[in-house]
Design a protein around this nucleic acid. Structure first.
Lengths: 345, 345
DNA sequence: CTGAAAGCGCTTACAG
DNA sequence: CTGAAAGCGCTTACAG
């Protein structure tokens, strides 16, 4: 019942365990004849090397840890996970997931440091390390790749990749301004926890910068914040209708918010885009079918790159590009149109 | 730079390595005084036991593998992952994720068996094992917990949990029939790959059973299948409009489909629910805000139970309930209403 | 190209 | 309650 060991293979093949190890690893000089014998014996016995033993001896875990400042569920986290996984699985690395979705989890994580001695590299996303956390992670002695934390605090990463939130939002404002929009509002979610800053929070900043660049003023109340509730859409409509002057376009921090908003606006008889244009962000699968204008970025794609970077660094290789910025694309669909004509009273 | 070992701690505390090991594990008889000394020395040195070494020696990996027959992204996979993770993290277990989203990945996975010797238990979801695969997994010698594969092929699992797809769909039909609906259609996605049967496919079967139980006939064309495309909603509307007699209610295999369908129906001037009622399935976060009637089941919740089951089995414990069925709840929102009055021509 | 030997860092019977 | 000793199953210099 117990698994065959390298000694069993050696005995069957009539060689030494050292030779078996070398033959199976493939990268050492072993005669073809011997190698064939070893492979034959190995597959006949159904041998798989004990990972714990080889890890202990070699000091390499062949595991990459992904630390997410958010639940594993949710569009961003799960798309990123899939991307990282796809890179790792091709190289025989295992994906080890950790999440620190609130302060309690975060403190427990950094106090117990389950990653310690448990991965050859770490990928971090969705939150910004405090100085202390950065130092703790640093003492692990493994390379750190950060995803979408580029513009905030990158003191502790060896490589990074992500989108340019600031520039992207400015581009969005630019495009809306180009078709005549001047009164553009911005909708985001309430900050749950100010300790959990992450890059999407920069979109607000990008909005202000974009407005400034386009020589547009941001009237009082044009930055709208919504609670995490089923009624968010309704609340948004209420706030928008109370705005004076009424905005002609609304940028949402996410598609999820844009979808709810468009639904509620139409429910209240406000036409989209005839009366008001709406932009989302993320380009969820549902955005296309629902006609939501959005900004496309694909965590599944750049997650794969992050995974590759982590593997390279884990192997001690040098990265050609250790700071990568990923392209985004503004996709205009049905929810964005020209500025409505002012009703001349 | 190199990590302190158990020998360093032993030396510092003035005891033997065996005693350090016992003291740190906490479950062995060690005098309080000695234990205190050991803890003090351990924390002073910043000692963390090498997992590889303890794993190699003890034969326990303290890892649970989650094998998903789907991408890690997507609502179901990621919610389930989060649930499993939440159970594992409380017990100090690591989550190791694997996915086999298509035949190629699946064959490669079962040929190389990266889980072998790599986890103390396996959780499997989103696909049904073939006999051969079941046997391969079985030879791993670790307990297998299956999630939502209960009614299909459970020959190889030691425990299982999931929803009753068949019964739930019958309940949905029953509720629709109770408010007068008789012409109820069903919409699903095309089967991508007949090798990838999974439980949601049973919803179709549940639909037919429910119709039969309610003494309703299923007219020609009432089972509608849609391609995976952005146009799925449009295609659905086309098919529905060509149906004679026209259905008064539509059950969708998922909320995602229901959301697209409702959007398109309204776009074509067909009122929901006045002209036609629509039911989804899953109760996505967006279902509430969009008023989509749905069936709630929470993979995050039962994923946690699956994780706990896996840990218990990994520890050799006996399960009180090794076959669990999780409750579902039909949630009626705006998209379901009474049967429209027949226009008497 | 191949083998004998040491050792990675723990845990666990076995004595005492 | 504590310690000495063996060993988990590999890999890796070191010889030859």
């Amino acid at each position: 019942m117990s698994e065959p060991t390298i000694y069993d293979v050696a005995r069957t093949a009539g060689v030494s365990p050292s030779t078996v190890s070398r033959a199976l690893q493939g990268k050492d000089r072993v005669s073809e004849k011997t190698r064939a014998k070893v492979f034959e014996a190995s597959s006949r016995l159904g041998f798989t090397a004990s990972k714990e033993a080889s890890r202990l001896r070699s000091g390499k875990t062949r595991r990459i840890a992904l630390i997410l400042g958010n639940y594993l569920a949710g569009w961003y986290s799960s798309e990123l996970s899939e991307g990282v996984y796809s890179a790792l699985s091709l190289c025989g690395y295992d994906l080890l997931s950790y999440r620190v979705a609130n302060m309690e989890q975060r403190e427990r994580f950094f106090a117990s440091m389950p990653v310690k001695r448990n991965a050859d590299a770490v990928i971090i996303s969705s939150f910004t390390l405090s100085d202390q956390e950065g130092q703790v992670l640093h003492t692990l002695g493994v390379p750190i790749v950060s995803v979408n934390t580029m513009h905030l605090n990158d003191n502790y990463s060896n490589a990074s990749i992500g989108i340019d939130e600031l520039g992207t939002l400015q581009g969005v404002i630019h495009q809306l301004a180009a078709i005549g929009h001047q009164r553009i509002a911005f909708i985001r979610r309430d900050y749950i926890n100010t300790d959990f800053v992450w890059d999407a929070d920069q979109r607000v900043k990008g909005y202000y910068l974009g407005m400034e660049k386009a020589d547009l003023v941001v009237p009082q109340g044009y930055e709208i914040s919504l609670p995490y509730s089923t009624d968010a859409g309704k609340i948004a409509v209420g706030k928008i209708l109370s705005l004076n002057p009424r905005p002609t376009a609304i940028c949402c921090i996410s598609d999820e918010l844009a979808i709810c908003l468009v639904h509620e606006l139409r429910h209240y008889g406000i036409r989209v885009p005839e009366d008001i244009s709406v932009m989302g962000f993320d380009d969820l699968d549902l955005a296309g079918p629902l006609g939501i204008s959005s900004v496309r970025h694909e965590p599944r794609i750049y997650g794969r790159t992050a995974g590759q970077m982590a593997i390279s660094l884990a192997k001690g290789e040098h990265l050609n590009q250790d700071r990568q910025i990923v392209d985004t694309a503004v996709i205009l669909r049905e929810t964005v149109g020209p500025v409505p004509q002012e009703k001349t009273a």
